[in-house]
Design a protein around this nucleic acid. Sequence first.
DNA 1: CGCTCGATTGAGCTTCGTCAAAACACGTGG
DNA 2: CCACGTGTTTTGACGAAGCTCAATCGAGCG
Lengths: 251, 251
Amino acid sequence: MLRQTGPTPTPIADDGDAFQFCSTCAFSAACLESGYDKSLLRDLHVLVEHIGPYREEEHIFREGDAFNAIAAVRSGTVKTYVIDANGREQVLGFYLPGEMIGLSAISQARYPCNAVALDPVVLCRFSFPSMAALATRMPGVQQQLFRLLSEDIGKAALLAGNYTADERMAAFLISLSRRYASRGFSPTRLVLTMSRTDIANYLRLAAESVSRVFRRFQDEGLIRVDRREIEILGPELEELARNILRDQAYN
Amino acid sequence: MLRQTGPTPTPIADDGDAFQFCSTCAFSAACLESGYDKSLLRDLHVLVEHIGPYREEEHIFREGDAFNAIAAVRSGTVKTYVIDANGREQVLGFYLPGEMIGLSAISQARYPCNAVALDPVVLCRFSFPSMAALATRMPGVQQQLFRLLSEDIGKAALLAGNYTADERMAAFLISLSRRYASRGFSPTRLVLTMSRTDIANYLRLAAESVSRVFRRFQDEGLIRVDRREIEILGPELEELARNILRDQAYN
DNA sequence: CGCTCGATTGAGCTTCGTCAAAACACGTGG
DNA sequence: CCACGTGTTTTGACGAAGCTCAATCGAGCG
C-alpha cells in the first residue's frame, strides 16, 4: 500500500502550476493532450501525492500488499523482485525516474511482487480507484493507462528470449543508456545503481558470469568499467543488443 | 488488421440474446456485472464481429499490421510469434478458446508480432477504438480491459525465469491442462494442437530436448504420450510445475 | 509403394552454473 | 592515518544441462 516514511506527504509547491504538472511523470503527455483543461487537470492533480524519500533498502510495497495505487518514480531507482520457490531472488525490473511501478497489480488487487529503493527514492503516487474513475471522464488519461499497461507487456523481452549472457548484458546496458538519455543524461556514461548480484538476478545469470562478461567486454574494448561506473565506448555494444531490443514484441 | 477470409462476417444468431452473450468471450464477466443493462449490452454487442473460420496455417495478423481490434478466440488455437534477428521463430504464446489476442498492440498502434491459426479458428473481433469509447461509459468494460492488460503482464513467467527443461515442460502441460479444464475439457487428457517444434520455440528449448523430456516423463510414469495426445497420470507433474506457476508474479 | 516431413535417438561440444579462494572497496574505530 | 572487518567483486577449476549435427524412424498421403 505504498508505505510512507516521512511526515504527511504534501504536494510540492512548484508542481501546483498546471503547466509544470509533474514533468517527470508518465501522465505529462496525457495532460498536454487534454489541452490544459484546468478543471480536469485539477482533478488529476488532486489524485497525486509526492511521497518519500524512501531510504536505500527501504520497501515501497511487498508481495501480497493490498493494491491501491500506481506510482511514477520521481527520483532514484526502484527494484522489483520476487522470491522464487528455491528461495532465490528473481529481479523483475529496475525503474528509473519517469517510469511507473505497480501496474501489474491491477488485475489481482494485490501487489504480486516486492518493490525496494536502491537509493533515495521519491514517488508520485496515484490512487488507482480515483484514477480509473477519472479515466471515464478524461479519455486522454484512459488512453495513457491503456498505453502504459500495454507497453509493460512487452518489457519482458530481455528475459523471455533465450539469449547468450553477452547479448543479455549488452541489451541491459543499452536499455539503461537509452532510458537515461531520454531523461537528459549522458547516453555513454552511466552509473549503475544496482549491485552485480542484482544485475545477475535480473538477467538470470550467475553473479560470476556478470563479472566475467564485464571483463570480457572491457578487454574487447566495448566498454570501460570502473566499479559501478560504465562508459560505452562504441556502437558495437548496440550491435550486440540489437538482437534482443529489436524485437520488443509481445502478445 | 484481422484479415478476413470468408464472406462478410455476420453476428451469429444465438448470441443475440443478452443473457447468452458470447459466453466464450472474455467480456462475459463485464456483461454480467453490468446487470444486463440492455442498451449498453446492445452497444457492446454491436462492436463484436464473429470472423473466420481461418484455416490451419492462415495468418490472423502480421507484425507491423495496423492495430484496430483485439479479439477473443472462439474456437481453435492461435499461435503468436516473431522472427528474431537470427531468423529463428520465437513463439510468444498459444491462445485457447476464451483468451484474448492483440492486447500488446495497443501501445504502438501496430501489431508487434504475428498470429497464425494452428487449426480452424473462429474469433470474436472487438474494434478497439469503439471499445475504448464504450469503456468511458461502461466502467465494467474499462475495468475488464485493465484487468486483461494487467494479467497479460504476468503471462511471461514461464519464459522469464531460468528454469530447467523439465520444469518448463511440466509448467507448459499443467497450464494447458488448467486452461482446458476451465473450459470444461478433461484436465488429464489433452490433445496438443501444436508441433514439437512450436513447443520448443515457445519454451526456448531445442526440438530435440522437447522430445527427450517427453520420453523421460513417460519413462518415469508422469505422463503417457501418444503422438500429440498426452495423458497426465498423477500429481507429480503438477509438483514439478509448481516452482514456475506459483510465482506468476510480475511488474 | 515411395515420398516427405516431423519426431526420435545418439555422440560430442559449448555455455554457463557451482564451488572455493583471493582481491578489493568501504566503513569503523583505534 | 592506518589497521581491521565485512561484504561485494573478481578469478580459476570443474561439472552439468542442454544445443548442434547427423542418422534413423515413423506417420500420413498421393
